[in-house]
Amino acid sequence: MNAKLSIEGVSKRFKDKLVLEKIDIDIMDGEFVCVVGPSGCGKTTLLRIIAGLEEPSEGNILLEGREINGPSPDRGMIFQEYSLFPWKTVRKNVSFGLEIDNMPREEINRTVEKYIKMVGLSGFEEHYPNEISGGMKQRVAIARALAKDPFVFLMDEPFGSLDAQTRNMLQDELLSIWEKTQKTIVFVTHSVDEALYISDRVAVMSANPGRITKIIDVNVERPRERTDLKIMRERKEILDLLEVELKKLLIR
């Protein structure tokens, strides 16, 4: 099976600082991969490079075997911070990417309605971003990216700033969207529990410079339980890896 997304020897330097060093990972079609690692290890930078918002200093990103060239809607991105257009309603935010493409009006309306419904925001179409909660904002961002029907979905700690309950709910909703749409997802998170609950594989990163130290398969069938004992072994392994990282950071 060929990889949907190949990251080949990607390094990134900001001035003299080496932030990412030789990142290598192949991600399969429809796979859900999580990236965990300590703060500042370069997770956002890696995602931005995949999105085409940042150039790698070395290495290549291949999407379906072709090298990427700048940002493009075939790689949808959900940012760590809120990123909705504050002057547009929920509906207009979701339709933005379609209107740019001059898609016919009826088709836009149909698509927008479908994805707003998929993220559970029917009835909020005419609200402005400052009138809805943080969790709802991230759902709009998800719908906005989904509407462009990307090959790969890049998510940078999308639920990081939400309370635990909302977070759990959105994880489940994301999983059901993933099952429905069969998208390939790269999901960055701080939370090992989140990573083990939602993903097929977890890439564990270390800091200074950012490297992938280990890729762990989560061989637990879905639907999973958050407290599944089968996950515990992986959980301990990742936490141990991260603890080593944390100690390294503290010693420095």
């Binding site: 999105a51 085409g52 918002l53 700048g70 940002p71 493009s72 809607p73 790689r75 949808g76 991105m77 940012f79 911070e81 990123s83 909705l84 257009f85 933005f96 990417g97 740019i100 493409d101 906005r144 990216a145 462009k148």
Partner: peptide
């Protein structure tokens, strides 16, 4: 900048747009 980047990944890729 995040709004500009959001627009870029949604396909709004040239300066005029």
């Amino acid at each position: 900048p995040i709004l500009i980047e959001s627009a870029k990944v949604l396909g709004c890729n040239n300066g005029t747009k």
